[in-house]
Computed example of a mutant assay.
Amino acid sequence: MAERISGIRFDRVSVAYGGGSGATVALESLDLTVEPGEVMALLGPSGSGKTTALRAVAGFVRPTSGRVFIGERDVTDLPPHRRGLGMVVQQYALFPHMRVADNVAFGMKAQKVPKSEIPGRVAEALELTGMAAYARRHPRELSGGQQQRVAIARALAIRPGVLLLDEPLSALDAQLRSGMLAELARLHRELPDVSILYVTHDQVEALTLADRIAVMDRARLQDVGTPQNLYRRPRTEFTASFVGNANLLPVTVGAGHVTFGKAELKVDTPHEAAAGATATLCVRPHLVGLGDGPNSLTGEVAEVQWRGSTHRLHVDVDGHQVKADLRELRDPPAPGERVTLHFAPQDAVLLAAGVSEDG
């Protein structure tokens, strides 16, 4: 469906509001490339710079310094309507007085697409998003999920090389969000040449959809990689805590082991981790088991949470809380009970001393 195959490149892009010492930096020296056909998620908390980065691509924000490229074109100084982008925002921004087909056609009319082409492209976009049967309806006659599909159809109808999605699922309830994640994944498979920049603060969305994730915090890029690498081998404490749940345990590095409280734990220590240095050990809660085993930790149960298919145990070990996600237990331990937890050496990641969330 896409007529253009384009990627996105941020070349040291900064955005600041105000001047002098009172300036607010919303994005600082972002160097990042979204490859043609790639889904890149910008993941981070509010104020991290992710939406500013997307708006810089869209043309709604002018970089204070640096350049933005779409494909080989420097678009930094181009107005939004000349960038050839499709965009879907949180509230969909459908025109309430227009029927679905007219909403989808709007962008093509603005781009002066020949009138003879518009009906076919509207039908194609609605078919692609599963909304062909709703072409004559008004937005008020649609559910939230259906309105979102129409917004996506409108963005795709202009046949963009780049699609920008700004927290498109945030207004949906949990069940609709899950269904739309599956739909967006299907769309990506059917439109392999469209590059997608997807802004979200939801780690599940990023892990589900993205080919790569760029982790943002405090206006800066903190980490970038595949979902699997960021989850299994995070580089910083911030990445470990924001991409999935994590136990982050303060340790002292030894030769082939680390010390946590009174426990000596066997883990893979990187070559640059000097003996005696302080570091942080990252262990995912679902990789922590109950009972004796390698790398045992003994402590007192502080809290037990039932989560349907799992119980989450919060265990106080030497003044630090360790989380364990266990398949639903018939007889879970009670708060105040002493238990032993364990994890395999290969399931722990040592975040070397000196590598903080500031990179």
Rank of each mutant, 00 (worst) to 15 (best):
H286M: 05
T252W: 10
T129V: 15
A133T: 03
I196M: 15
T298Y: 05
P96Y: 12
A255V: 04
P192H: 07
V13K: 10
D316R: 04
P294G: 11
V283W: 10
R154E: 10
I158W: 03
V39F: 12
R67Q: 14
T310C: 02
S29P: 00
G179L: 04
F238P: 02
G59N: 09
G308D: 13
A171V: 06
S46D: 06
I152V: 15
V25D: 03
A123E: 14
A324C: 13
T239L: 02
L78A: 13
R149Y: 14
P45M: 05
L164F: 03
T64K: 08
P345H: 14
S48L: 02
L297Q: 13
P168V: 10
Q203R: 14
A263M: 06
L42H: 09
A93T: 05
S29V: 04
E237H: 01
A101E: 14
L281W: 00
A348L: 12
P36I: 08
A151G: 12
I8A: 07
H257E: 13
S241W: 05
D316I: 00
D77T: 12
A275Y: 07
D268F: 01
M1E: 13
L142Q: 08
M98S: 07
L32N: 09
F60Q: 06
S65D: 15
K115C: 02
G44P: 03
V339T: 04
M40D: 09
H188W: 02
G291P: 01
V301W: 04
A56P: 00
Q146H: 05
I213H: 09
G47P: 09
I118R: 03
H97F: 08
A132Q: 13
L54G: 14
E167A: 08
L54P: 10
L191W: 02
G20F: 10
G299K: 08
G49A: 01
N245P: 00
